[in-house]
Nucleic acid binder design. Sequence first.
DNA 1: CAAATATTAAATGTAAGACATATGAAATCT
DNA 2: AGATTTCATATGTCTTACATTTAATATTTG
Lengths: 246, 246
Amino acid sequence: MKSKLVPSADLSAQIAANIRDAIVSGALIVDERLPSEAELSLKFNVSRATVREALKRLAAQSLIRTQRGATGGAFVNRISFEAAQAQQITTSTLLLSMNDVSFETACEARYALERACAPLSSERRKQYHINAMRDEIKVQGEANLTDEEFCASDVAFHRALVDGAGNPVLSYQLAGAVEAMQPLMNMITFTARSRDAIIALHISIADAIEAGDGAAASAGLTALEAETQALAHRIFAQRSGNTAQV
Amino acid sequence: MKSKLVPSADLSAQIAANIRDAIVSGALIVDERLPSEAELSLKFNVSRATVREALKRLAAQSLIRTQRGATGGAFVNRISFEAAQAQQITTSTLLLSMNDVSFETACEARYALERACAPLSSERRKQYHINAMRDEIKVQGEANLTDEEFCASDVAFHRALVDGAGNPVLSYQLAGAVEAMQPLMNMITFTARSRDAIIALHISIADAIEAGDGAAASAGLTALEAETQALAHRIFAQRSGNTAQV
DNA sequence: CAAATATTAAATGTAAGACATATGAAATCT
DNA sequence: AGATTTCATATGTCTTACATTTAATATTTG
């Protein structure tokens, strides 16, 4: 058989690409077993070490899983929303931190996407989504909460909102945007007053979602975005002021 | 130094996780050089082959790049939006196809996300975004266009719309949703009449974006979603009817 | 002296072989 | 029939060796 490969890259990368194409194109289907490492090394005419490096690349993308033992081998993996989401979050997080994406840009994207969920969530949310939102609001009001804990609760609140839309694809997409913001959010100091403002908006949003009023929920999110942006703006201006006036 | 690792997984996976954490936490910064493979194998007390498998895992996620030669080695990679997007598209595509996500669900997510971009795009789009949309509309009207070409042009139209928002984070997030839909869209047969309906809506959307009317653009997208869903519904009902009445 | 050339050292890329370990299936023994 | 042992097969890991790339250094040469 001796599959052909595109040159100008490491052999292991070429082999990985070759197998990846087979998976994406559907030539290899979920749970199908790949040839053993020994067979692959014959097929591609490379050493077993090289084949293994290729397989590890694919495993890193959750495209395959491996099992040891007599009936073991590499199997095409059914990518789960959880696994995809986890990868998406690391990628998005690094993307923001490494490319100096401004707080403003990330925040805008996040709230734009959330507003996309608001009407659907208003329509379909279950009671437990409402409960989750209310619970987080309660947490956010606790006095001795650190900024990080406040942020974590904020994320949980928004995830409940997004999950309320009952669309796994939306939840998956949003997870990246929401979670990736967290490191940026953690740079913010939340005063008691700004927390109160955010909590008040959370309440109005939860109320709107519970009442099935998508437009009001969207408006609440817009107000929350404005509040967050203003808060970040004040803090960053203050900090750059401090360092500038040396 | 001899870093500690979490057990119950392959050594190469543990080592990859260890280095990945260092990158995500910021302990390793962009363009920083990792220790050589030989040094890593000493540090983690494993063979060079195992270290290499770990590094290939990281390379598959674009977290590092490697260079050969005297001053070569593995370097922390600045993840680009392009690279992240490409990965996201493969992942999203497989996610949809492997988990039997319904056309309905995927379509709903896609249009919800696009509506999130519409107001921003109406406000900020440059002339070349408008031009790109108009060009694609023209393409879509060509008589001897295959269904696949029509779909590809449709994707290009919507990408121009999304890019018009001028927010790279949004563009990145949306790319996954829009591109991943394409295999599903390709299952649809577009009659001349359905194409005309879609084109008419595209025109109204482009007009709204050009006029800076975000609400109208959103409405146009909603109408387009309804049109697409109805079209898919008719076709899938027809097909399942054909196969059911055996 | 300066520029072209050759050497060298350090790193990754690849190969080959060996052994360790896990695991299901078959053979064997109660 | 059921428990136990053996065995074959596959991945996981280590070792050693060599190929290749690349930049820096040393050497030669005009």
